[in-house]
Simulated scan of single mutants.
Amino acid sequence: MPIDAAKALAAEPRTGEIAWDRKDVQLYHLGIGAGVPATDPDELRYTLESRLHVLPSFATVAGSGSPGVISGLSMPGVDVDLARVLHGGQHLEIHRPIPVEGRATATGRIAAVYDKGKAAVLVMRTEVADADGPLWTNDAQIFVRGEGGWGGDRGPSARPEAPTGDPDKVVERAVREDQALLYRLSGDYNPLHADPAFAERAGFERPILHGLCTYGITLKAVVDTLLDGDVTRVRSYATRFAGVVYPGETLRIRMWRRQGAVRVEVGAVRGVPPRERSRTWGRDDAPVLADTIVHHS
């Protein structure tokens, strides 16, 4: 079995120094669709260095995410084919607002390994702290298809209660045809998001958008719509990746207010232009993010 759960869990954490600056923050924001319209004062907070604030989901790419998911897939006890890997979920806890420029220590380890029968799930935890203390903790749930079935722990099964009633807000966000190509410049160079031949080998019609790009687009929509544009109000943000997004589609983001939280569901609509002759043309609200909660102050 390419995944040795005991060995992976016992492996020493990997620690590395990370750094980021204003340019990294601006590039990330552009990669998740910020800056439209370019002269909008609310958008300039994401793109203009003199007004810049940091969307908390930047934590998933800060310092190119090192040590991150790709690094974790080379941990002792883990030897998998990247084409079988899918990002299953993400949980981010923010301990302090992320500075526009910073240096920090990132410590990564495999926190859990679950046996889902037809797949294994690795929980890769990254804890980041600077000289003033903890900044954020990131948990990435990674599905490795075809690597389950050894009789291990299946992991937690509890899921958040589904939202009821009409959403308090619904917004749509267009995904550019080149969105994945721009987003990957923040450090996730998995060819699944750029190389048509690799995407086909992985079972997709064409390259798909990074799940963490959809994750960032969604958090920005929540902050801008229900949190008065104040990024410092975000305390934690969790989601399950329920489906893929193809560049050129549109995201429909539904939001329900809760006490100290926003419940979110995201679907992909409209598809790509007919000239692409894509089988995804005409998708209507196909789920892409589920069980999504933003806790806030």
Results as ranks from 00 to 15, higher is better:
122 L>S: 05
160 P>G: 01
53 H>C: 11
104 A>W: 10
292 T>I: 02
87 H>W: 01
39 T>R: 03
257 R>L: 08
111 A>N: 12
22 R>V: 07
274 P>M: 08
155 G>I: 04
269 V>I: 14
94 I>W: 05
59 A>P: 01
149 G>E: 02
82 L>G: 02
286 A>Q: 12
11 A>T: 13
117 G>L: 07
26 Q>D: 09
183 Y>D: 14
237 Y>F: 15
102 G>C: 12
159 R>T: 09
256 W>E: 09
127 E>Y: 00
142 I>G: 02
40 D>W: 06
189 Y>N: 09
243 G>A: 00
215 Y>V: 02
161 E>S: 11
200 E>W: 09
218 T>C: 03
223 V>I: 13
238 A>P: 00
19 A>F: 06
40 D>M: 00
291 D>K: 05
187 G>R: 07
93 E>A: 11
123 V>C: 02
67 P>Y: 13
45 R>Q: 04
71 S>H: 14
75 M>L: 13
194 A>V: 06
293 I>C: 09
183 Y>A: 03
37 P>R: 14
28 Y>W: 01
19 A>E: 14
149 G>Q: 00
165 G>I: 03
219 L>C: 01
205 E>A: 06
279 R>E: 02
161 E>F: 03
271 G>E: 08
125 R>F: 07
241 F>E: 09
158 A>G: 05
294 V>E: 04
56 P>L: 11
253 I>F: 05
181 L>Y: 02
52 L>N: 03
138 N>M: 13
281 W>E: 11
75 M>Y: 15
76 P>N: 06
151 G>T: 03
96 R>M: 01
160 P>Q: 00
257 R>I: 02
227 L>M: 12
97 P>I: 04
93 E>W: 08
6 A>V: 12
192 L>K: 03
166 D>N: 11
169 K>F: 08
109 R>I: 01
218 T>L: 03
162 A>G: 08
21 D>N: 10
116 K>Q: 07
269 V>R: 09
246 Y>V: 15
43 E>S: 10
121 V>M: 13
146 G>P: 00
197 A>F: 07
280 T>A: 11
114 Y>G: 09
64 S>F: 14
186 S>K: 03
186 S>V: 07
79 D>G: 11
247 P>R: 01
251 L>D: 08
45 R>L: 14
103 R>Q: 12
169 K>E: 13
136 W>V: 06
130 D>F: 13
135 L>D: 10
292 T>R: 01
124 M>H: 13
175 V>T: 13
166 D>Q: 15
64 S>R: 12
290 A>R: 11
86 L>W: 10
185 L>S: 02
54 V>I: 12
121 V>S: 05
242 A>M: 02
292 T>D: 00
82 L>R: 13
